[in-house]
Amino acid sequence: MTEVSLFESDLLSPEVQSLLPPGYTLRALRSNDYERGFLKVLEVLTEVGNHSRQEFDEQFNYLKKHNHQYHTITITEDAKNQVVAVGTILVERKFVHKNGLVGHIEDIAVNGNQQGKKLGLRIIQALKYIGAKRGCYKVILDCSEKNVPFYQKCGFTQKEVEMAWYVPEVKARL
């Protein structure tokens, strides 16, 4: 089966690629990244669940069909053919700012044994580049208080307050 990329490589920053350690590659999520440990890397963030290959493919195909909106990237360690860092920018269409676009950065994760190589910084830089190339007037993200200094080093400024409402697992019956 031919491997498919989520989006075209012209949205990837050549500068970020040049700043990666030797033997690491920045690229769009690929259809065979299930086997390369993509979901395992996401487990450093939160519960991911046990996806079957079919469930991964269904999600990948949905994102591919909407690749003007969803841009998930990876950094791979080439010698091991493994995904070691991931991130996504979701491009939202707005009415404000004359039908402007806003980039939402989500799901930044770096494999625990790859810490200290600036891979998280490179993922953020690459996602900001995609946001700019897609025409976003701003790129935003939510993070925990402990990660504020990291994102400030990435060029973000703290603004406003994040709020969340989690849908109860047991929904009320009508």
Rank of each mutant, 00 (worst) to 15 (best):
Q115P: 00
I73P: 02
Y70P: 01
Q82F: 04
I75T: 03
P149R: 14
G23V: 06
L45M: 13
Q59H: 06
D57M: 12
L45H: 09
T76E: 03
V139S: 03
V167A: 09
E43M: 11
L42F: 13
L174G: 11
V84T: 03
V161G: 00
L29R: 01
E3N: 14
A109F: 05
P168I: 07
I140A: 06
N111T: 09
F7E: 02
Q114M: 15
G116E: 05
C136P: 02
Q152I: 07
K159E: 14
F150V: 07
H51S: 09
L141M: 09
F7A: 05
G37P: 05
K133D: 00
K146L: 12
N61E: 13
E43T: 13
K146C: 04
S13H: 04
V102A: 13
I105E: 01
D57W: 04
E145M: 07
G37C: 10
E106Y: 11
I105T: 04
R53F: 12
V96F: 15
F60S: 01
Q125R: 11
V91L: 13
N67R: 08
A28N: 04
M163P: 00
G135K: 09
V110L: 08
A85P: 01
P14K: 11
I124E: 02
F95N: 09
H66P: 04
I130P: 01
V161A: 11
E15Q: 13
L45N: 08
L39C: 05
K159I: 12
A126I: 03
G112H: 13
S144M: 12
T74A: 07
G100R: 02
E92L: 15
G87S: 07
Q54I: 07
L20P: 02
V161Q: 12
G23H: 06
T76L: 01
S18Y: 05
K128I: 07
T76G: 01
Q69P: 00
V161T: 15
L39M: 10
Y34S: 03
F56W: 14
Q17T: 09
I124Q: 03
S31A: 12
Q54K: 14
